[in-house]
């Protein structure tokens, strides 16, 4: 059963990779990368059980956190061109001449 799960996850990884390469819009690629990270995490958990070392689950949990945080960081960059948010750097400059 674990083997079947691994196979399906590998197929999903291939589809997500295809979407990340082909994806016409920015958001297609972001969702593809996020899905890819989630699938890698699932694959790591299954690998832990496949090799009888389920203590590797902790690493998978930390991967989930990193994946979540980096997706939010990427989305903030796409929207505001900086990590600080909308009003941090350009709210005070009326001409908007500062670097983002």
């Amino acid at each position: 059963m674990i083997t079947t799960g691994c196979l399906f996850i590998l197929v999903t990884l291939a589809l997500a990779l295809l979407r990340a390469v082909r994806g016409p819009s920015v958001y297609d690629r972001i969702v593809a990368v996020n899905t890819f990270g989630t699938m890698i995490v699932l694959l790591l958990v299954l690998l832990g059980f496949l090799t009888d070392r389920p203590e590797f689950e902790d690493i998978a949990l930390l991967y989930v956190l990193i994946n979540f945080a980096s997706t939010i960081a990427v989305l903030k960059f796409v929207k505001y061109s900086s990590l600080a948010g909308p009003g941090a750097d350009r709210g005070a400059s009326p001409k908007g001449g500062t670097a983002p």
Binding site: L62, Y63, I66, A69, S70, A73, V74, F77, S82
Partner: peptide
């Protein structure tokens, strides 16, 4: 995972901006 997928992606996006 922390440096490659997390930080350096953000740094490269900052460069891209």
């Amino acid at each position: 995972a922390a440096v490659g997928a997390g930080i350096s992606t953000v740094l490269m996006l900052g460069t891209l901006a």
